[in-house]
């Protein structure tokens, strides 16, 4: 039997598994990147905490603790592989008697340890997004926040209305890259039984012994997914270049 026939046979016999795996990968990458970005914003803000000379003691301690915690979290998560984090999460949960297996019965895509996988990829992405957002925040001209403060806006109003929208806008290419990385790296979550694309191919290959065909199919799917994502990111980039087409209004993104 040649490779072409193998591929056709695999697609016809296991298309539903591949489709489910594709849905799992998309959910992991989109949700992981989205919520990871939100958490990353708070992580970046934590890493910008600096006790001031005039702060009361409790505030100095709180700021120091916040800075230390966020920095430690970022260092630990970025310094260990996501596969190892997934295994530690799974066995840690099992030790504590928490079972994430099939906690959303009836929804195929959430079979197995998908929810745990979502938590792992989100927490992992948050650490990287924290750095992305931090560099975006540092890239916004100091005059922007001074302009806002000089008009009477509070620190938080200045942050959410003026500084953060600009920081995120500057960081969109890097945020997009994180999304693409997540599409591919979500495959390591198969080690804890998350039903994503690699997991589907692995099971199909073991079932049919058509290893080459199975992995070739998902290689093409991954490539198509990343190419499609790149295209989306390029379109966003083009929109951003067009000054009047895409802009942020009062902290909300609006396409005018």
């Amino acid at each position: 039997m040649n490779l072409g026939e193998d591929i056709a046979r695999m697609l016809s016999a296991y298309w539903d598994k591949f489709l489910l795996g594709l849905a799992g990968t998309l959910i992991l990458s989109v949700v992981g990147t989205g919520i990871g970005l939100l958490l990353g914003i708070f992580l970046a803000l934590g890493k910008r905490l600096r006790p001031k000379k005039n702060d009361p003691l409790y505030l100095k301690i709180a700021k120091g603790a916040g800075l230390g915690l966020c920095s430690a979290y970022s260092a630990v998560v970025r310094g260990t592989p996501m596969m190892v984090q997934a295994l530690l999460f799974k066995y840690g949960c099992m030790m504590l008697g928490v079972n994430w297996n099939n906690i959303l019965p009836g929804i195929d895509v959430f079979n197995g340890w998908m929810v745990a996988g979502l938590i792992v990829i989100t927490l992992n992405t948050a650490a990287y997004m924290g750095e992305v957002v931090l560099s975006g925040l540092n890239g916004v001209d100091k005059g922007q926040s001074e302009g806002a403060r000089s008009l009477g806006l509070s620190s938080s109003q200045t942050l959410w209305s003026v500084v953060l929208p600009q920081a995120l806008r500057n960081a969109i290419p890097t945020i997009g890259n994180e999304w693409i990385v997540n599409i591919k790296d979500s495959s390591v979550l198969n080690v804890i039984g998350v039903a994503e694309l690699y997991f589907a191919a692995y099971n199909a290959a073991n079932d049919s012994y058509a290893f080459m065909a199975s992995y070739l199919i998902i290689a093409v799917i991954y490539l198509l997914l990343t190419m499609l994502s790149n295209l989306v990111l390029k379109l966003v980039g083009v929109k951003l270049e067009g000054k009047s087409i895409f802009r942020f209004r009062h902290g909300r993104r609006a396409i005018a």
Binding site: G143, Q144, E146, G147, A148, S150, L151, V162, Q166
Partner: peptide, 13 residues
């Protein structure tokens, strides 16, 4: 209020 040398208009608005 203060008006700055470098304007400090909000670039995103």
């Amino acid at each position: 209020n203060m008006v700055f040398q470098s304007f400090n208009l909000f670039a995103n608005m």
